[in-house]
Structure formats: C-alpha cells, structure tokens
C-alpha cells in the first residue's frame, strides 16, 4: 500500500494537459481537411495515440503510479497490436 498516495497532481498540470488535448483535437480536424493520401490515416491515428497517451499518463496517473501499472498497460496494448498485425498477415496479402 502507499504507492501513488503521496503524489497529488496540481490543477494547473491538468489544465495544461487539457489545453494540449484541445489543441491536438483542432489539429487533427485541420489536417483531415488536407489531402495527404494514405498518410492522412496515419496522421489521424498518430494524433489520437498521442492524446490517448496524455490521458493515460496524466489523467490516469500512470506517470505517478507504480511501474507495474505501466507494464500492465503496455502488455494489453501490445496484445491488441499483435492481434491486429497477425490478422493483417491474412488480409493484406490476399484480398
């Protein structure tokens, strides 16, 4: 017990993160109106991942919690990624 109990995140940190999130949102909407071809989906997903990372690390306290939680989250995201990649070994090569 006691991990993460000691750190209280400041309001200002949260507000800063929120401002960044809003900026990234407007960025992704702006970029979407440009024609980047196949890059556009990568950019959209990249920005979304960045936003998710911010929420995970700050709002969800991963940055301040025990390392174990970060490892757990990593494991589950990697699992999902593996499912995706292995499925596309089928789809990307045939249809």
């Amino acid at each position: 017990m006691g991990h993460g109990k000691n750190h209280i995140v400041n309001y200002s940190t949260y507000i800063f993160v929120w401002l960044t999130l809003v900026t990234l949102t407007s960025l992704t909407v702006t970029v979407a109106s440009l024609d980047l071809g196949f890059l556009s989906v990568l950019v959209a997903l990249g920005i979304a991942s960045l936003k998710a990372l911010l929420v995970l690390l700050v709002f969800m306290h991963l940055r301040f919690d025990d390392r174990m939680f970060r490892i757990f989250v990593l494991i589950s995201f990697i699992t999902l990624l593996i499912f995706l990649v292995l499925t596309f070994f089928d789809y990307a090569n045939i249809r």
Partner: peptide, 16 residues
C-alpha cells in the same frame, strides 16, 4: 498467436 491454424482451409493468404 496461433489462432488461425483453425482456418487453414478457408482460403487465407499463403503468408498467413
């Protein structure tokens, strides 16, 4: 990582 070995006859890609 091995689930698709149930599907070898459904017409998956050779790579898969």
């Amino acid at each position: 990582l091995v689930w698709a070995h149930h599907m070898f006859t459904v017409g998956m890609s050779g790579t898969a």
